[in-house]
Write a protein that binds this DNA or RNA. Structure first.
Lengths: 218, 218
DNA sequence: TGCGGTTCTAGTGTATGCAAGAAGTGGGAA
DNA sequence: TTCCCACTTCTTGCATACACTAGAACCGCA
């Protein structure tokens, strides 16, 4: 996990490390990012740290206020809701396009992923299911045959990783999630893009509901 | 146009200026961005220039290759097509949501904009129509009542400004554009979100066709 | 004791210097 | 003549130093 990768630019390594800490929640929203301190932690000067922070702010993971430093984006509840809706709409858009455009190889890959997931649900292997889920959605992105859309969808998904990571922990959620994937897949195989989009919207809606319920005790 | 704005951060001013030059085409795609040279041009050192370039790369206006400098994003034809499709889908998504969520005030503002545009088309005032067009679409973004979606849509529109700016110059395009707005508006007023989305897709498709035709002589 | 202004300080914004890597250049060998 | 390799130069990546500003702490005054 913590490989050296000395070939990468120092600023890039810092950016990746920080992004990771933010999305995993190690760096809580609202935390101030002290350039000097971070630099010390990575054995680097402030310059590469600044560049990393600039990048993160562009992705929306941190917020910068001139001369007042950067803080980890403390997204409001409303904003999280907004982001979830956007995410659901984008996913729906992707699956609609993908339904019309995926070739047989891509379709079968999607079906295979769904097939494989049955064992994971049965075994209760949430991590494996999570990885499969990621692949499942990514396969759909690529199925749009539109590199730009795929990038954007993936980017948004990354940004939401911080909120999504716990959503599968809810009781029985993996089984329900798999069932929803099943319906989705059926619509895709039938070539009904609009229906697939509807399935995806409700799939994402259910996922967000599960998350909401899980984090209700904050 | 070239106001001082000394209150802004130097790096911000450079970023804005460069973004402007890129989107207006002054800096052609593929141009290399020499940090020293740009710094001299703005009377600044390389540091703020670097920060500006980092920001631009995050927005996608320039591409950075480690130790090889940054060049203005020479987007391939395929990528432009991909971006147009994404743009069309996002706009369609927005108008569908907006149809269900806009309040009477927002609806009437949209109608008013459409009303006003008649005179612009008649007078052949393309710049005024362009501004109205911008407002028209932005009103729809805001009509989604989802700040995140509105931001993203606006951001994408900004990124595409470089390609869009000439599209209205095609013969008779403003009149056709206005007619399409009319149909769109009717669907919105009727409360038919799906139909509004379809109208928007075809509107965007026509706009891209017009652009393609216009730039065919390259 | 409360309030306004002043000073202090921590931390960002910018400049500059140095080192390392990548493209271009020239010469030598096949 | 062409290909390969060392060398040069140019540009970026990083470190360090200085400047400036926003808050905090402080102090004097009412």
């Amino acid at each position: 996990m913590s490989e050296e990768a000395p070939n990468l630019l120092l600023s890039e390594r810092i950016r990746i490390a920080l992004a990771d800490e933010i999305t995993t929640g190690q760096l809580a929203p609202g935390s101030a990012l002290d350039e000097q301190q971070i630099g010390d932690r990575f054995g680097a000067s402030r310059t590469p740290v600044r560049e990393a922070i600039r990048q993160l702010s562009a992705v929306g993971l941190v917020e910068m206020r001139p001369r007042r430093g950067a803080v980890v984006s403390g997204v409001s509840t409303q904003r999280i809701i907004d982001m979830f809706e956007m995410s659901a709409e984008i996913e729906a858009m992707c699956v609609r396009l993908a339904t019309y455009r995926m070739n047989p190889v891509e379709r079968s890959r999607l079906a295979q992923l769904h097939e494989d997931s049955e064992a994971m649900v049965a075994a209760g292997d949430i991590d494996a299911y999570d990885r499969m889920n990621w692949d499942f959605h990514q396969t759909i992105y690529e199925g749009t045959h539109n590199a730009f859309i795929a990038e954007q969808a993936l980017g948004l998904r990354d940004r939401m990783a911080a909120f999504r990571r716990t959503q599968l922990r809810g009781g029985g959620r993996p089984a329900k999630s798999r069932a929803e994937h099943g319906e989705l897949l059926a619509a895709i195989m039938r070539g009904d893009g609009e229906e697939a989009a509807r399935c995806m919207r409700s799939h994402m809606f259910n996922a967000s509901l599960a998350l909401e319920r899980f984090t209700a005790g904050r």
